[in-house]
């Protein structure tokens, strides 16, 4: 099994899924035997036609599927360096979510002020010190390149921001708690090209600090920003390798067909 997963010896593995299967409550099996490493300080992109299971796979990493009764995991996702299997029933999903944060497809700020949105994760962690909160919020907003645009109106309602700003706010919200991994679920699909560019630049900077796993329907985006790319089809992992390798010289015919637009 391990040899199937072409590991790159120079990289540090942050997390890896081993023989991961997943079924929804209605019985449909959405993921079949997925083995995929996520490297530290790298961006791993998941591509594939819609319905291939890439979002489902992403949402396993912070146990989002636990919110809906009846969903079933099988296999494991190991988080390094402590070797925790985050899918283990005994591991609290909240603990997982505090270590691995997520940015959603559509911006989903809370009905609160900009400041409170970013501070929310810290408050959930019991942080009450105003000074610490102020510093962390500023740092996170700067990290999401939003600070200059909102520093004068931190206490405005988050809904008043534009779509691109809202999404960067959600990134700041996810960033404020110093996660080990950040998950992005098609973060730019609801945004215009300029906002998309901003967020792509942002991600390139973010990987200095953490590991990123991103689902994208946009192959150019995957090629632009990611270090590694995984191509999924019908719930299976077809190919996983360095991005330039996948896009220039794929090993599998299916991958090539998808990338060249013959299919999908």
């Amino acid at each position: 099994m391990v040899d199937k997963k072409r590991k790159h010896p120079k990289e540090i593995i942050k997390a890896e899924s081993n023989a991961l299967n997943f079924s929804y409550a209605d019985g449909t099996q959405a993921l079949k035997n997925i083995n995929l490493p996520v490297y530290e300080n790298k961006i791993t992109a998941l591509i594939g036609p819609s319905g291939c299971g890439k979002s489902t796979f992403l949402r396993c990493f912070n146990r989002m599927h636990d919110l809906y009764p009846g969903n079933k995991y099988d296999g494991e996702i190991i988080l390094h360096p402590d070797n925790t299997n985050i899918l283990d029933k005994r591991v609290d999903p909240i603990e997982v979510r505090m270590r691995i944060s997520m940015v959603f497809q559509k911006p989903n700020p809370f009905p609160k002020s900009i400041y409170e949105n970013v501070a929310y994760g810290l408050r959930v962690r019991g942080e009450k010190n105003k000074r610490v909160l102020d510093d962390k919020v500023e740092e996170a907003l700067k990290g999401a390149s939003l600070w200059d645009e909102v520093k004068k109106r931190l206490h405005d309602l988050a809904f008043n921001l534009s779509g691109g700003q809202q999404q960067r706010l959600c990134i700041a919200r996810a960033l404020a708690t110093d996660p080990e991994i950040m998950l992005f679920d098609e973060p730019t699909s609801a945004l215009d090209p300029i906002a998309t560019m901003n967020i792509e630049e942002l991600m390139a900077g973010l990987k200095e600090k953490l590991s990123i796993l991103i689902v994208t329907h946009n192959m150019q985006q995957a090629a632009r920003i990611s270090d590694y790319t995984a191509y999924m089809y019908l719930g299976e992992l077809v190919e996983h390798d360095k991005t330039n390798k996948v896009f220039t010289n794929p090993r599998k015919k299916e991958t090539e067909d998808y990338i060249t637009g013959k299919f999908g």
């Binding site: 919110l67 959603f104 929310y120 708690t177």
Partner: peptide, 26 residues
């Protein structure tokens, strides 16, 4: 919307925190 709940849970909020801090204001 469910997206609001997912946002809160993804931050590591408990049910109670999600209900009081996010859903009730919304």
């Amino acid at each position: 919307p469910m997206a609001m709940r997912e946002g809160a849970y993804a931050m590591g909020a408990t049910r109670f925190q999600t209900a009081i801090k996010v859903i009730t204001p919304a």
